[in-house]
Structures are given as structure tokens and as C-alpha cells.
């Protein structure tokens, strides 16, 4: 292990190898994962856009690469992809700001 960094794009290709140390669980995970991303009530393109947004929220560089490619393959364009990330960002920002109601309550409770 001579690498001096945590994230290597080449590692994404090794994702399937997680079964080497726990195959039954990995098999179940990949089977379920594949089922989740199949066309259903939502299209594959819509699911890829959701995955891209979530990838930004969990700040996973592998997922961002994978679903930026996935969105393009499913026919999404730059505008749709950026809007998806804006949705993720809005929820992150909103989820911070909504806590300010607690701060406001606390401040009001201890103020004249």
C-alpha cells in the first residue's frame, strides 16, 4: 500500500470484489441494488438523477463518477443533472436552516 491518497478512481472497478470477504451478503446487496435501479414506477433516467443527487449529499466520489456517467447513458443532460444536485444542496441547506427554529426557541425562552 504505497498510495498516499484515499480515493483512487480505479478502485471503483473493484466494487464487485467486496464479495471476496463476505460473498452471501455481497450477492444479496448486488441483487437488490440491481433491482432498485431497474425501470419501475420511476424511469432508469429518473433513478440515475436521484442517485446522482444522493451521491453529492453523501459526498461519495465513486458514486459521483458512476452516476454522472449513468445519467449521461440514460439520456439526461447537464441542465437536468445540475438541477438534481441543486435539489440535494437545497435539502442540505434547508436541513441546516430548519434547526435554527430550535435556536430561535432557545433564545426566546431565555430572553426577556
Amino acid at each position: 500500500m504505497s498510495k498516499k491518497h484515499y480515493f483512487d478512481p480505479e478502485d471503483l472497478k473493484k466494487f464487485g470484489n467486496i464479495g471476496e470477504w463476505q460473498k452471501p451478503m455481497a450477492d444479496k446487496f448486488f441483487s437488490w441494488y440491481g433491482e432498485v435501479f431497474k425501470e419501475g414506477a420511476l424511469t432508469e433516467r429518473e433513478k440515475a438523477l436521484i442517485a446522482l443527487a444522493v451521491a453529492h449529499t453523501v459526498q461519495c466520489p465513486y458514486c459521483i463518477d458512476a452516476y454522472a456517467s449513468g445519467c449521461l447513458e440514460k439520456g439526461a443532460d447537464e441542465e437536468q443533472m445540475m438541477e438534481a444536485v441543486q435539489v440535494a444542496a437545497a435539502i442540505r441547506a434547508g436541513s441546516t436552516l430548519v434547526y435554527s427554529t430550535q435556536m430561535m426557541n432557545h433564545v426566546k425562552n431565555m430572553s426577556l
Binding site: E39, T43, E44, R45, L72, E73, K74, G75
Partner: peptide, 17 residues
């Protein structure tokens, strides 16, 4: 595809186009 990736499902692309 407008780049180095493979095309997605033709039927789904057609519907969106």
C-alpha cells in the same frame, strides 16, 4: 452518445426525446 459512454435503453431514450 456525446462522449465516451455507451447509449442507454433505446425505448426509454425514444420516449424522452
Amino acid at each position: 452518445p456525446s462522449g465516451a459512454f455507451l447509449p442507454g435503453n433505446q425505448e426509454a431514450l425514444e420516449a424522452e426525446f
